[in-house]
Amino acid sequence: MEHDPTFSVISVEHVYTVLDSRWMAIRTTHRFTLEALQRSRFFLRSYTWDNAVGIEKPPIILSGRNQSGTTSHRIQGPVILGEKGKRLAVVDLGRVFEKGEQEFLEIEHFFVRTRPDDSGFVGHAALPGCREITLRAYLPARDDLRPCFKSGYTETKEWKHTEPLSSAPSATSPRLEVKHKVPNPVAGMRYRITWDQNRSDT
């Protein structure tokens, strides 16, 4: 993930929800607390969706709404497509932020995978200034999910730390919830929740 020179992500929550029993329809929600590093109104939201034969809907902005029902946050132009599923969305925050000012941003994505992988994950790579990361997944109930929390340096594919996680029934849906919070992430480290996925039709 490239560094955004204009805003720092102070805290972030990524929520990954599997919407169907075949593990194909995915909704992800991302909540950012941003702090301006310099005078700017544009936040660069980078993410990855590497599934050429699937369906990818444009991101939806959920934050920035005022009392009249309109929103000051919006995507500026089309999402920029890069190699190996790299994506870049330029988010207009609606006004110019001075250095040190903070803003809350919430974005939702919807994807459909026609060929789900054997495993899945939700994660975040920490950059300077990040103080808290929350990772959450809502998954179809099964006995062999084997969820894990992993962390490692961004410049290597190896994981420095791995630990098993437990799952619990969700209070709001017929799914299992897996979550993990990183209160003091280290810049240059990537953090993930991973799990095994069901590729059958049941």
Score class of each variant (00 low, 15 high):
residue 142 R to M: 15
residue 166 S to E: 13
residue 90 V to C: 03
residue 111 F to D: 05
residue 143 D to K: 15
residue 145 L to R: 12
residue 142 R to Q: 15
residue 105 L to C: 02
residue 173 S to D: 13
residue 169 P to Y: 10
residue 120 G to N: 09
residue 86 K to N: 10
residue 143 D to L: 13
residue 131 R to A: 15
residue 99 K to W: 01
residue 145 L to F: 03
residue 138 Y to F: 15
residue 124 H to E: 15
residue 153 Y to M: 07
residue 167 S to Y: 10
residue 129 G to S: 11
residue 168 A to Y: 05
residue 141 A to H: 10
residue 183 P to F: 02
residue 158 E to V: 08
residue 166 S to G: 14
residue 185 P to A: 06
residue 159 W to G: 05
residue 146 R to P: 03
residue 180 H to L: 02
residue 162 T to G: 04
residue 180 H to V: 01
residue 152 G to R: 08
residue 114 T to N: 09
residue 105 L to W: 02
residue 160 K to S: 14
residue 174 P to M: 09
residue 176 L to M: 04
residue 151 S to Q: 11
residue 134 T to M: 11
residue 112 V to L: 14
residue 132 E to A: 15
residue 112 V to I: 15
residue 156 T to F: 08
residue 154 T to E: 11
residue 112 V to R: 15
residue 125 A to W: 08
residue 87 R to S: 03
residue 117 D to S: 14
residue 135 L to I: 11
residue 107 I to A: 02
residue 153 Y to E: 09
residue 128 P to G: 02
residue 177 E to I: 12
residue 133 I to T: 03
residue 127 L to S: 02
residue 175 R to T: 13
residue 123 G to D: 06
residue 162 T to W: 06
residue 173 S to G: 08
residue 185 P to I: 04
residue 113 R to P: 01
residue 90 V to L: 01
residue 180 H to G: 02
residue 116 P to V: 05
residue 151 S to N: 07
residue 189 M to W: 06
residue 176 L to Y: 04
residue 148 C to L: 10
residue 113 R to K: 12
residue 170 S to V: 06
residue 125 A to F: 08
residue 169 P to M: 12
residue 127 L to Y: 04
residue 120 G to C: 10
residue 167 S to V: 05
residue 162 T to F: 04
residue 91 V to E: 01
residue 114 T to R: 14
residue 129 G to W: 10
residue 125 A to T: 11
residue 129 G to F: 12
residue 191 Y to P: 04
residue 132 E to P: 05
residue 152 G to Q: 11
residue 168 A to R: 13
